[in-house]
Simulated scan of single mutants.
Amino acid sequence: MSSKLSSALSVEHLSWSVDDNQILSRVNFALQQGEMLGLIGPNGAGKSSLLRCFYRYITPEQGQVKLFGQNISDFTQKQLATKVAVVQQETPHYFEMTTEQIVAMGLTPHKGLFESDSQADKRHIVDALEKVGLQLKAKQQYEQLSGGEKQRALIARAIVQQPQLLILDEPTNHLDIRYQIQILELVRQLGISVITSIHDLNLASAVCDRLLLLDKGQCVAQGLPDEVLTEAIIGDVFGVCCQVSKHPQHGKPLITYFYGYQSEHSHDMENDS
């Protein structure tokens, strides 16, 4: 496919530390145009920090980040906002605003200072609300939404922003199973480049084209789901025993975990006493 011939995002030797604590260390990868890349790894692996480098919340100490072949530092903030949309892990507070008004904020990078919304803009807002299942909550106060509904509203705002690259930091954290699947499948069908951090390895396997596995700030594996999600790699990085088979529907890796860690831990403690 021609849409995958060039990189949407390329990262070379990216490193970042805080008070001599190395958070990210020489990370390298490329996200192809139209591809959905899943960022996986244990808590504290550096996933959120890496994503923050891509929308300039963090400035890395070393390395280079290029967006569509251009150094990310060359973009003005407005230019960056027309190309990149971000849905962060924490849902921010927006008092005295309706769900519809939150979603409409996605239009801001494309508007002049006093430019009003057109009928096409309003249709785009309605369509985005329908896509995330919030059309009946359009006039409701955003702060009255549940955590999952807030997350879906922010994804709708990102859709309205019409980015070329969508960055999602744990977008399924507050969602029930149905919406976890539905939202990530929706994001995949937008036809744009996507990089998202995901805790659920089976969900990442199912919806992502490729995976990037971080551990202690380093990239320890990247590639197709069946190249990254092996029993040996999962055991080494996550410290769990598992069996990897093929999912009966999509054929990608399906991980079955083994249990009993607490009893083993208690037995070890008894032996130490």
Rank of each mutant, 00 (worst) to 15 (best):
Met1Gln: 13
Lys4Trp: 00
Leu5Trp: 00
Ser6Arg: 13
Ser6Asn: 12
Ser7Leu: 08
Ser7Asp: 14
Leu9Arg: 00
Leu9Gly: 00
Glu12Tyr: 05
His13Ser: 15
Leu14Trp: 01
Ser15Ile: 06
Asp19His: 09
Asp20Gln: 15
Asn21Glu: 13
Leu24Gly: 05
Leu24Val: 09
Ser25Asn: 15
Ser25His: 13
Arg26Gln: 15
Arg26His: 14
Arg26Ser: 15
Val27Ala: 12
Gln32Tyr: 00
Leu37Ala: 01
Gly41Leu: 06
Gly41His: 03
Gly41Glu: 06
Pro42Arg: 10
Ala45Pro: 07
Lys47Asp: 01
Ser48Leu: 09
Ser49Arg: 03
Arg52Glu: 11
Ile58Gly: 05
Gln62Gly: 11
Gly63Glu: 03
Gln64Leu: 15
Val65Leu: 12
Phe68Glu: 13
Ser73Met: 14
Asp74Leu: 14
Gln77Leu: 15
Lys78Ala: 13
Lys78Asp: 11
Lys78Glu: 10
Thr82Asp: 07
Thr82Ile: 06
Lys83Asp: 02
Val84Lys: 04
Gln89Leu: 06
His93Met: 12
His93Arg: 14
Tyr94Thr: 09
Glu96Pro: 02
Glu96Lys: 11
Glu96Phe: 10
Met97Glu: 02
Thr98Trp: 06
Thr99Arg: 06
Glu100Ala: 12
Gln101Asn: 09
Val103Gly: 11
Gly106Lys: 04
Lys111Ser: 09
Leu113Trp: 12
Ser116Leu: 09
Asp117Phe: 13
Asp117Leu: 15
Asp127Tyr: 08
Ala128Gln: 05
Ala128Gly: 08
Leu136Ala: 12
Gln141Tyr: 11
Tyr142Cys: 07
Tyr142Glu: 02
Tyr142Thr: 01
Gln144Thr: 12
Leu145Phe: 03
Gly148Thr: 03
Gly148Phe: 04
Leu154Val: 02
Ile155His: 02
Ile155Cys: 09
Arg157Asp: 01
Gln161Glu: 05
Pro163Ile: 04
Gln164Val: 07
Leu166Met: 12
Ile167Met: 07
Leu168Ala: 02
Asp169Thr: 01
Glu170Arg: 02
Thr172Pro: 06
His174Val: 09
Asp176Glu: 05
Ile177Phe: 13
Gln180Arg: 14
Gln180Glu: 09
Ile181Ala: 11
Val187Cys: 10
Leu190His: 00
Gly191Cys: 09
Ile195Trp: 05
His199Phe: 10
Asp200Pro: 07
Leu203Ser: 09
Leu203His: 04
Leu203Met: 07
Ala206Cys: 02
Cys208Trp: 00
Leu214Tyr: 00
Cys219Arg: 12
Gln222Cys: 07
Gly223Asn: 01
Pro225Ile: 11
Glu231Pro: 11
Ala232Arg: 11
Ile234Leu: 10
Ile234Cys: 07
Ile234Pro: 08
Gly235Val: 00
Gly239Phe: 05
Val240Ile: 14
Gln243Glu: 15
Val244Arg: 06
Val244Asp: 08
Lys246Asn: 13
Pro248Ala: 10
Pro248Asp: 07
Gln249Asp: 14
Gln249Trp: 10
Lys252Cys: 10
Thr256Asn: 13
Tyr257Asn: 02
Phe258Pro: 08
Gly260Ser: 04
Ser263Gln: 14
His267Lys: 15
Met269Glu: 14
Asn271Glu: 09
Asn271Met: 14
Asp272Arg: 14
